[in-house]
Every structure is written in structure tokens, then in C-alpha cells.
Simulated scan of single mutants.
Amino acid sequence: MAKNAFPPIKTGTSLLTKVVGLLILIALLTLVVKHPTDAATWVGQAGHFVGTVIDGLASFLQHAIG
């Protein structure tokens, strides 16, 4: 019987993942710097959407539970 029955978990990330993450971060920063009004509008809309989803889930649970 082996000492460890589970395979080791890879903890590091690949270079490609880091490069893609860095490129996304640069794109977001560029968007905020060049178009701050649009970026603020998108964040506000995303926040409103998340709030609507949470309200819908709360309403569903209230009706389901009782």
C-alpha cells in the first residue's frame, strides 16, 4: 500500500496563465484611464444586476421556505 493514496496537487501556475492575467489587468486599467465614465457605468450596471439576482434569490427562498 502506498504512503499517500492521493496524487499530489499542482500548486504553481503556468507562465501562460500569468501572462493572460497580466494582459487582462492592463486592458482593464487602460479602459478605466481612457474611458472612466463608461467604466463607471458598466460597474454600476453590473452592481445593479448582482443586486437584482440577490433579490430574486431571496424572494424565491421566502416563497419556497414559507
Rank of each mutant, 00 (worst) to 15 (best):
D55G: 07
G12E: 15
L23T: 11
T30Q: 05
A2P: 07
H35R: 15
L29N: 06
N4Y: 04
A58T: 11
T13V: 09
I54Q: 05
L25C: 10
A39N: 01
L31I: 04
G47I: 01
V19W: 09
P7Y: 02
L23V: 13
L15H: 09
L22W: 15
F6K: 13
H48I: 12
L29C: 11
G44K: 04
D38W: 13
P7W: 01
F60I: 06
L57Y: 05
I9G: 01
I65R: 11
T37A: 08
I24D: 12
A2D: 07
Q45Y: 07
H48Y: 14
A64V: 04
V32L: 07
L25K: 12
M1T: 05
L28A: 11
A58N: 13
D55L: 14
I65M: 11
T41G: 04
V43G: 07
L31A: 12
G21C: 01
A64F: 15
L61R: 12
P7N: 02
T17S: 15
L16S: 15
G66R: 07
P7V: 00
D55Y: 12
V32M: 05
F6M: 10
I54G: 00
K18N: 12
K34Q: 09
Q45F: 06
M1I: 03
A40N: 10
L16D: 13
G47D: 06
K3T: 11
L23R: 09
I24K: 15
I54M: 08
G66M: 02
I26G: 01
A64C: 07
L22A: 15
T37Q: 08
A2W: 03
L57H: 03
H35Y: 15
P36Y: 01
V50S: 05
H48P: 01
V43S: 08
I26H: 02
N4V: 06
V20F: 10
V19K: 09
T11K: 15
T52R: 08
G47M: 05
V53C: 03
F60E: 03
G44T: 11
F6Q: 13
L29M: 09
L22Y: 13
A46F: 10
L23M: 09
K10L: 13
F49Q: 06
L57A: 06
I9K: 15
A2F: 05
G44M: 03
M1H: 04
G56N: 11
I24P: 00
Q45S: 08
G51W: 02
V32S: 01
H48R: 14
N4I: 05
W42H: 09
K3G: 03
L16A: 14
A64N: 14
G47N: 04
G56Q: 04
A40M: 13
I54D: 04
F49H: 07
T41K: 10
T17G: 06
P8T: 03
L16H: 11
V53Q: 04
I26Y: 03
T17F: 12
I24V: 15
G47P: 00
V53A: 08
N4E: 04
V33T: 07
K34I: 14
V50K: 07
A2S: 08
A27K: 11
K3E: 11
D38V: 11
L15N: 11
V19M: 09
T30F: 10
W42D: 07
V43P: 00
A39V: 02
G21F: 00
L28K: 09
S14D: 13
G21D: 08
K18M: 11
I24S: 14
V43H: 03
T41R: 12
L61A: 15
L29V: 10
A27C: 13
I24M: 15
F6T: 12
T30V: 14
